[in-house]
Amino acid sequence: MNKSKYSVPLLMLATILAGTLSPMQSAVNGELGHWLNDGNACAVISFASGLVVMFFIIMAKKETRQQFASIPSLIKNRKIPLRNWFAGMCGAMVVFSEGASASALGVATFQTALISALILSGLLCDRFGIGVDEKKYFTSYRVIGAIFAVVATIFVVSPQWHSTSFILLAILPFMAGLLAGWQPAGNAKVAEATGSMLVSITWNFIVGFTILGIALLIRISLGHVSVQLPDTWWMYLGGPLGLMSIGLMAILVRGLGLLMLGVASTAGQLLGSVLIDVLIPSLGNTVYFVTLVGTVFALLGAIVTTIPDFKTARLAESEAQS
């Protein structure tokens, strides 16, 4: 009885804390991108560090090695639609935008723009059946949630309306969020085909690293950029932080379900973003009052958007019990 009473609040708290890993990753990649002065190079390093970790995890077990080795035949036989194998491109865009804009925008503004776009993307993907098995039509709750997301983005960029460069930078995480809204569905299909989420995550990193790496090599060969690796150890933690976030969410979802996990992780992301900007002044990011208002609107958007699904889930649960 006590377990039932306290387990959900504790899991919610754990998810909020796990959600703070995402803004931590944005802060690390933002500083790395600022140091390198190149978002492309930053993204390659971030993906490479995560890929190294996943390589050792995959190679540790015979089963995952075999599952990973099956990927070429699965692609050839069109086990799943080809587009799902390129879901890592969406993650590549997110990491690239972190390196290119998180330092200049501030973590709170970056994460709010990203999350707001994720809400909009999820709404559109559900409506048109993109990456989901069943379409979910527009409802008043979903539309209101999307409006909150748009308002949140407007709030966080409003202090810098006069700066064209700031607005252009803010478009990067917003566009990345629109693309990344489909990414979990693509990764889930890869996991289903290979039989392993670990293999799916590894493949996701390989795709992102390959695409970004090719782009970087072309730019280096043309003399457009030169890369000097930083000697600050924590600048290499972007990839591992992302992996930790993915792993913890995969564990916590079993106790909370997708709806509560989504809201709690969003709360953690937004709270962590503001705390990083406030508590680490050396990053040079200003948290305006409208930034705080924007984060609240983004959180409200995430909560309101889940209301119809939450009601459906509760109804299904009550029917099952009866």
Rank of each mutant, 00 (worst) to 15 (best):
Met1His: 11
Gly272Phe: 10
Gly33Ala: 05
Asp309Cys: 12
Leu248Gln: 05
Pro159Glu: 04
Ala316Gln: 06
Val132Met: 11
Met24Pro: 03
Tyr141Val: 01
Ser245Cys: 15
Ser103Trp: 06
Gln321Trp: 00
Leu105His: 02
Trp203Asp: 00
Lys5Thr: 14
Ile201Glu: 05
Gly195Cys: 02
Met89Cys: 05
Cys125Arg: 08
Gly145Phe: 03
Met197His: 10
Val290Leu: 11
Asn204Glu: 13
Tyr6Cys: 11
Pro9Ser: 03
Ala18Val: 01
Ser4Pro: 11
Phe297Val: 09
Met12Ile: 15
Leu172Asp: 01
Tyr236Val: 11
Ala92Asp: 06
Ala102Met: 04
Gly262Ser: 12
Ala104Gly: 12
Ser116Lys: 02
Ala149Asp: 03
Ser226Phe: 11
Arg142Ser: 00
Ala188His: 01
Asn285Tyr: 10
Met244Glu: 09
Arg83His: 13
Asn285Glu: 12
Gly99Thr: 08
Gly208Trp: 04
Gly91Asp: 08
Lys136Ala: 10
Trp203Ser: 06
Gly91Ser: 01
Thr312Glu: 14
Pro81Leu: 11
Tyr288Asp: 07
Ala191Asp: 06
Val107Asp: 02
Asn187Arg: 03
Met12Pro: 04
Ala176Tyr: 04
Thr232Ile: 15
Phe297Gln: 04
Leu118Gly: 05
Leu252Glu: 05
Val52Ala: 14
Met59Tyr: 07
Met175His: 02
Ser22Cys: 12
Ala27Asn: 07
Phe174Thr: 05
Ala69Val: 02
Phe297Leu: 10
Thr164Tyr: 13
Ile206Glu: 12
Ala152Gln: 04
Ile154Trp: 08
Gly208Tyr: 03
Thr266Gly: 06
Phe56Arg: 14
Ser318Asp: 12
Ser26Pro: 02
Val293Lys: 10
Ser158Arg: 07
Ala117Trp: 01
Val207Gln: 03
Phe128Gly: 05
Thr64Asn: 15
Phe205Trp: 09
Ala298Met: 03
Leu241Asn: 05
Gly181Ala: 08
Ala176Gly: 02
Asp277Asn: 11
Ala316Asp: 07
Ile144Asp: 04
Phe56Glu: 13
Gly255Gln: 00
Gly122Ser: 09
Val274Gly: 10
Thr20Met: 07
Arg314His: 04
Ile206Ala: 15
Val293Gln: 14
Ser245Ile: 10
Ala176Gln: 01
Val287Gln: 10
Gly39Asp: 09
Leu299Arg: 03
Val293Arg: 09
Ile147Asn: 01
Ser273Phe: 00
Val150Met: 13
Leu105Asp: 06
Leu300Ile: 07
Ala92Lys: 00
Ser26Trp: 04
Gln25Thr: 07
Thr286Gly: 01
Gly239Tyr: 06
Asn40His: 13
Trp203His: 04
Ile71Leu: 10
Thr295Glu: 15
Val95Met: 02
Ser265Thr: 13
Thr112Glu: 05
Pro23Phe: 04
Ala191Arg: 06
Thr164Val: 14
Arg219Trp: 02
